[in-house]
Amino acid sequence: MSRNRQSSLRLPSPANVLVGASIVIVAFLLLTPVVMIVWSAFIDSVFISFPPRGYTLKWFDAAIRYPSFINGFVVSLQVAAITATLGVILGAAASLVLVRGSFPGRGTMNTLLLSPLMVPNIVLGTALYMFFIGVSDRLGIDVSGGIPSLVCAHLLLTLPWCVRLISANLIGGDRSIEEAAANLGANPWVVFYRVTLPQMRSGVIAAALFSFIISFENLELSLFLVGPGQTTLPIAIMQYLEFNMDPTIAAISTVQILVIAGLLVITDRFVKLSRIV
């Protein structure tokens, strides 16, 4: 009895204390900038001071009235929505082939689909810009700027994540249900729509949301490919910082943080992010 009581009162080992302290320090370093941005969006002063003079919502009103932020937000929404839709369609098809198929070169195809993750975005943006310029010179059509080029570029970033998310969902699926449906006379399209697709649903939703987030907050790749009169929200924020330094930028950044955080929470409810990140 006394031994059990002593074991229950045993202090944690120094290694566990060190690991716990390291986790707390890392979390503090990661969250402090985010908390400071959100806090500075509400202070009633152009310059950050402590204690603050007061709190206000006027910086959010100023952000809404700034045309570049609104236009950038709309363009980012359009590009992210199109990219997420195409990424899910292509990613679902690729995942079905990679998980269910058996053919020579499957490993090479899987590596090729995931290869954009290995290239820095700034390098990928430069290469794509040079590629679009070369295509424009050959065809005589300007394809280097605008939403189509942004969508094509963002697909390179989102497609690998779509494949990983949907493949992780397919691997845990029960193929015996599909075989039973086929044995009962269902054609392949009915099997896919009635059996396979419901099994992929959580992975498809998570892939769509994750793709939307990646496209919506991308800066490095978009910087090379925006056209005249069209800019994304991250680029509009960067351009605003060149000539202004006030909490308006914190206000629009807070909106962006809330959108991305909300989508990440929803994504984690369908597929645990720890499985694919």
Rank of each mutant, 00 (worst) to 15 (best):
R3Q: 09
R3H: 08
S8V: 04
L9M: 09
P12N: 13
P12H: 10
A15V: 00
V17E: 09
L18M: 15
G20L: 13
A21E: 09
A27G: 14
T32A: 09
M36T: 07
W39M: 01
S40T: 05
V46E: 15
F47P: 02
F47H: 11
P51G: 02
G54E: 07
G54P: 12
T56M: 12
D61A: 10
I64T: 08
I64G: 07
Y66A: 06
F69E: 11
I70Q: 11
I70W: 13
V74T: 10
V75G: 10
V75I: 11
L77N: 12
Q78Y: 10
A81T: 08
T83M: 12
A84V: 01
L90Y: 01
A93V: 07
S95Y: 05
S102D: 03
S102Y: 08
S102A: 08
G105S: 07
G107V: 02
N110L: 07
P116C: 09
I122S: 12
V123M: 02
F131G: 03
F132P: 07
V135H: 06
D137G: 01
I141N: 05
V143E: 03
G146T: 12
I147R: 08
L155Y: 03
T158S: 04
L159C: 05
P160R: 13
V163R: 00
S167P: 02
A168N: 15
N169P: 03
L170Y: 03
L170W: 04
I171E: 15
D174V: 06
A186C: 12
N187V: 03
V191G: 08
V195K: 00
S202V: 01
G203E: 14
L209N: 04
S211W: 01
F212S: 00
I213F: 01
I213Q: 06
I214P: 00
S215L: 11
E217V: 05
L219N: 09
L219C: 11
V226E: 14
P228N: 15
T231Y: 04
A236G: 07
I237Q: 02
M238R: 13
Y240A: 10
Y240C: 08
L241K: 11
F243I: 11
F243G: 08
N244D: 10
D246P: 07
P247Y: 06
T248G: 00
T248S: 06
A250L: 09
S253Q: 12
Q256T: 03
Q256S: 13
I260L: 13
A261R: 05
V265I: 15
D268C: 01
R269W: 15
F270N: 13
K272D: 14
L273W: 03
R275P: 00
R275G: 00
V277C: 10
